[in-house]
Simulated scan of single mutants.
Amino acid sequence: MSDAAGFDDGSGRLGRGVDAAATLLAYAGGFCLVFIIVLTCVSIAGRALLTLGFGFGPVPGDFEMVEIASGVAVFLFLPLCQLKRGHVTVDLFAGAMGRRGVAITDLAGNALMTGASAIILWRLLAGLQDKMRTGEESFILAIPVWWGYALSLVGAAVFLLACLVTVWRSVHVCLILLQKTRA
């Protein structure tokens, strides 16, 4: 991994490990989306066959499974999005700020995202504990709601790690730029 400025990011083994975990989770998120597509197609085809008089029908609880899988997929994609700088940024003044200015704003943005990811993880964990305590289940399939929270929690935890790695990378780039200006 290297920063967009062309520097070694300095994250070492931890950075590579988080990158590998984020990539694996992104593939799992892609699997969730493929599952949603197949499930939706099968359910729609079943509805069509039912109206034509065949003995098939929609998949029971399809919307429950789509709801859970789409929520989980979002959390599974977040770590890789953070590591690959895939979040939306506004670079309106980037040309006027120079490399140091961009590096400082990147650091600030990564620090803010780290704070947000920590809050998301904290509240998701609280939600998981609540759903486990109450034993809430989905209406049709009686899927324990905490399953979706638990799977999402994995993505949220790796998202926080990815945010910490991006803060480290930004600090590393800022230090390198600071050393270059002193030399």
Rank of each mutant, 00 (worst) to 15 (best):
G127I: 02
Q82W: 05
Q82R: 08
H87T: 12
V66Q: 15
L107Y: 00
G53L: 07
Q129Y: 10
L124P: 07
A26T: 09
L25N: 06
V34R: 00
G57W: 03
T89H: 12
G95V: 05
G29I: 02
A94F: 04
T40E: 11
Y149W: 13
S138G: 06
L151M: 14
S2T: 12
V173Y: 03
A156I: 03
R133F: 10
Q82C: 10
E136K: 10
V173C: 03
M132F: 12
F77Q: 03
I119F: 15
S152L: 06
G17P: 05
V88R: 11
V42G: 08
S117W: 05
A26Q: 04
M97E: 15
L161G: 10
P144E: 03
I37W: 05
P60E: 02
A5E: 13
R182M: 12
L178F: 09
L125I: 08
G148I: 01
R13I: 13
Q179R: 15
L177K: 05
R47A: 13
G101F: 06
L177G: 07
T40R: 02
V102Y: 07
I119G: 07
R47T: 11
R123P: 01
G53Y: 01
L33W: 04
D130K: 13
I37S: 12
L178W: 12
G12R: 08
A103F: 05
W147M: 13
I44P: 02
L177V: 07
Y149S: 09
S170D: 11
R133A: 15
G155T: 09
C81I: 15
V34K: 00
F35C: 04
A156S: 15
E137Y: 06
V102T: 12
W122D: 11
V38Y: 01
I104N: 06
G155E: 10
L124E: 08
G15Y: 07
C174P: 04
V173H: 03
G30R: 00
K84N: 09
L112K: 07
H172F: 09
P58V: 09
R182I: 11
L107D: 04
F139Y: 13
V59R: 03
G115R: 01
A22H: 03
Y27M: 14
I68R: 02
G127W: 00
R85I: 06
G148Y: 04
F139V: 12
I176H: 11
S70K: 02
A96P: 02
F7V: 02
L151T: 08
H172Y: 09
I36Q: 06
L14S: 10
V171K: 07
G127F: 00
G55H: 04
A150K: 01
C32G: 01
H172A: 11
G115K: 03
G86M: 10
C81Q: 14
A26N: 09
